[in-house]
Measured scan of single mutants.
Amino acid sequence: HNLTITQGKLFFHYNPKLCLSEIHKMEEVSGTKGRQERNDIALKTNGDQASCENELLKFSYIRTSFDKILLRWEPYWPPDFRDLLGFMLFYKEAPYQNVTEFDGQDACGSNSWTVVDIDPPLRSNDPKSQNHPGWLMRGLKPWTQYAIFVKTLVTFSDERRTYGAKSDIIYVQTDATNPSVPLDPISVSNSSSQIILKWKPPSDPNGNITHYLVFWERQAEDSELFELDYCLKGLKLPSRTWSPPFESEDSQKHNQSEYEDSAGECCSCPKTDSQILKELEESSFRKTFEDYLHNVVFVPRKTSSGTGAEDPRPSRKRRSLGDVGNVTVAVPTVAAFPNTSSTSVPTSPEEHRPFEKVVNKESLVISGLRHFTGYRIELQACNQDTPEERCSVAAYVSARTMPEAKADDIVGPVTHEIFENNVVHLMWQEPKEPNGLIVLYEVSYRRYGDEELHLCVSRKHFALERGCRLRGLSPGNYSVRIRATSLAGNGSWTEPTYFYVTDYLDVPSNIA
């Protein structure tokens, strides 16, 4: 807008934040220059609390790290170098490059900038070799853009010569660093050979998330399962459950009422301010606690030095998902009996873990797994792929695949051998790939016309006998059925096997 004052003059007093240069501009645009008398524009009460600059400061050096910015700028000295009290560095987070010096300023003089007072450097006698002032900004957020400017702080001049310097606002972004852990990993099994893994992005990506790394490792069953005799009275049979499938998407929606109208769909109840505040506090606490764990609990591995020492970490090797089922080394339970199943799973520490690289999504279907087997899954978020990966501390989750139908069934015939004193040795093959492992066998036998009897055969007993022995049988026709019990439950009964026990007292003698 054009402003013209045809008559009258300007009068400025007691404006401590208004620089004289701005008042002189007002004289020019209003056409009143030359009308004012000496005392109409006070030299001592206008701009006496402001830094009124008329020179431009330029930054000469900028260096960044993930949490620091090192700045240096060209030296500046007023005509009387004693008038320079120091520099004021202003900075704040700036997602967009549209910041002005006066953003967030209120009537009390406060604003949204963080201000650092910096002492002037030592003055050199040689004007050509003056030290460049600077400042190291610490405690910054990774991968965050900051708006920065600097200006001088000078003393009051009796001659009211307006001098000083100020830089333009520059924008500097800190470097990326390792992201925080992925949030809320959930693993479920939808079949006997697959596990579905879902997660949420890290709360602090500290860069642009480029991919996720998912490692999985087959877990050995508890050692007590191999040692305890679950045929003993009072000892509860062990059981394991597989990871249940995901709930429906509708039930997972946030901010939804727990109660549904019987007449149909209901609208979600909005969260109160107290609920939102509580969630923010919980989120802040979780982030602080995660940072504490990362800094205190997890110790970084030592990389190899120039002395030739090897990095103890196993090298990563990509495998196809079809090879995942046989990740671990199978060892027989008892070496003397080769027909026992290889369900003991000690994992070799030198073995390469299978892994998958996930790009542009937060889910993965891990296939080719062994049925009813526990897996430990390790999830890392990465925001750099080359020249070397920059990934987060791992988040861990466990899951067990679903049982395989008929995996616990005894394959092959049940054979028998009759000894003296009416002892019958029953023999059968253990299931080759049971659900988890076989903890015991149930032997059901009966003599024709009598009630059915049951015998429990422990895992250890089966390994020693290759089956079991029935003792003290009365003469007669017998039928026997056997079924295995694994961590997933009972298998199917075998087809009945028949044998006849004679009275050993009636056996004919070869003595003449």
Rank of each mutant, 00 (worst) to 15 (best):
Y375H: 10
L237N: 12
P475K: 11
L487M: 14
V297P: 02
Q252P: 09
S474T: 09
G449S: 08
S458K: 01
Y478M: 01
W216H: 06
S203R: 07
E433S: 15
T386I: 10
C269M: 02
E224H: 13
P300F: 06
V358Q: 14
L487Q: 12
G325R: 05
E495F: 07
R471G: 09
E279I: 05
Y375I: 12
E389W: 11
E465P: 03
D503N: 12
S444L: 07
V327Y: 10
Y445A: 14
S479C: 05
R466T: 07
A394V: 12
V424L: 08
R301W: 07
L426D: 01
R376T: 10
N477G: 11
R471M: 03
Y375D: 00
P205S: 10
R483L: 04
E221A: 01
S492V: 12
V480P: 01
T340W: 14
Y259S: 10
S248F: 12
T307P: 11
D204P: 02
T373L: 07
H425A: 06
G436W: 02
Y441S: 03
A336M: 13
S363T: 10
S251Q: 09
S341N: 09
A463S: 11
G476D: 01
S474L: 12
V345H: 09
G368C: 09
A263I: 14
K302L: 11
Y230Q: 12
R446H: 07
A220E: 13
Q380W: 11
K361G: 13
D503R: 10
I410M: 05
V334H: 09
G476Q: 00
E430S: 03
E362S: 06
K361M: 10
K406L: 09
R353N: 13
Q252E: 08
E247Y: 10
Q380K: 11
R376K: 13
D261H: 15
S251Y: 07
A399N: 01
T343G: 10
V324A: 09
E452Y: 06
R286V: 03
F226H: 07
A484P: 08
V359M: 14
Y441W: 00
P475L: 07
V297C: 06
L225R: 11
S223E: 12
S283N: 09
D273G: 05
V443H: 00
D385R: 07
F215H: 10
F499E: 01
E356F: 12
A336S: 12
F285A: 04
S474N: 11
K432M: 12
V443M: 10
I482T: 03
N435F: 01
G374V: 04
Y478R: 00
D409R: 06
F355P: 09
S479F: 05
A263W: 03
N422F: 03
E310I: 04
E260G: 07
T307R: 13
